[in-house]
């Protein structure tokens, strides 16, 4: 879509766009380019610039079992949180969409978790799951093996998944409800006249009509789980115990800033970028975003 009427002064137009270009260049393209450059080079130990090493950094990264571990954990985390947050988000959205009395109050409440800052939610859930003081403390009293996220990796992972899903179910809820409410009232009414009951309508009409939103959220929640998990992981477990909750972004941060291995971190960044681009591309290319109601 293009405007028919425009201003003619080219220089003025460029002026409007220039600040954004400068910013994007400095803080997006340059760092991205630098990551690429670092990923294919190695800093010489005693200065004197970088040495081209081809795919060496990538070979090294992929040869590292810990890296594969972080990929697998990231995927498990993405799968579990997408399933939980989308599942609960959808359930609550469908329930709200029935428009029973007081549903507006519920709708307001269901949005809140998304407004809770992730690290604060993380701290809250760390407390709730803490074996020494939280709700589990009463159960743990007699049996210390029963629950201890500080030592048991599975427990730690569970804790992080629950916390993240709690927050993102609200996000999914917002989108699912918006999609459900975008379905014209008359389509629902027509199916009611056609004899379909409430549940049948959900299955035959409403769910099929929100599939675009479903796929959109699926991609978003996978990519978000890669990036937004950092704060939660850092506050809850620092990637531990014994790296049981070290995800890809966390490992980049750890290797880059604690291990000062810029080339390794850069190579990991490139892999992650590639993954995200594929997912996003997939979304733009293959997922039709809206149903067109006549």
């Amino acid at each position: 879509m293009e405007k028919r009427a425009t201003f003619s002064k080219t220089s003025v137009g460029v002026m409007f766009v220039l600040p954004q270009i400068l910013l994007v260049f400095t803080f997006f393209y340059w760092p991205t380019g630098a990551a690429l450059y670092w990923a294919f080079t190695l800093e010489r130990p005693w200065g004197g610039g970088n040495e081209w090493v081809g795919l060496d950094n990538f070979r090294q990264v992929f040869a590292d079992r810990a890296y594969w571990g972080s990929i697998i954990r990231s995927i498990i985390f993405a799968g579990a949180t997408s399933f939980l947050s989308m599942g609960f988000g959808l359930l609550l959205a469908v329930a709200c969409d029935r428009g029973l009395k007081f549903y507006q109050a519920f709708r307001t409440v269901f949005v809140w978790p998304y407004a809770v800052v992730a690290p604060a939610a993380a701290l809250a859930f760390r407390f709730i799951f803490a074996p020494e003081a939280g709700i589990f403390s009463a159960l743990v009293k007699s049996n210390h093996e029963f629950w201890n996220p500080a030592q048991n990796g599975y427990h730690a992972m569970t804790m992080i998944i629950v916390c993240y899903s709690w927050k993102y179910a609200a996000y999914c809820f917002i989108f699912f409800l918006a999609a459900l409410q975008a379905i014209p009232r008359s389509v629902i009414e027509a199916s009611a006249l056609d004899g379909a009951g409430v549940l049948r309508r959900v299955r035959d009409i409403q769910l099929p009509l929100i599939t675009p939103t479903f796929f959109f959220l699926l991609v978003i929640s996978i990519t978000d789980s890669f990036q937004d998990s950092f704060g939660i992981v850092d506050v809850m477990t620092d990637g531990g115990p014994a790296k049981a909750t070290e995800f890809m972004v966390y490992k980049i941060y750890f290797d880059g800033f604690r291990g000062l291995d810029y080339s390794g971190a850069a190579a990991q960044s490139i892999v992650l970028m590639f993954l995200m681009m594929v997912l996003t591309f997939f979304q733009f290319r293959f997922i039709e975003r809206r149903i067109h109601y006549s």
């Binding site: 340059w30 972004v249 980049i252 970028m273 995200m276």
Partner: peptide
């Protein structure tokens, strides 16, 4: 397409 987190080091 790419959030800050993935290009954090540079």
């Amino acid at each position: 397409m790419l959030p800050l987190e993935v290009r954090i080091v540079p």
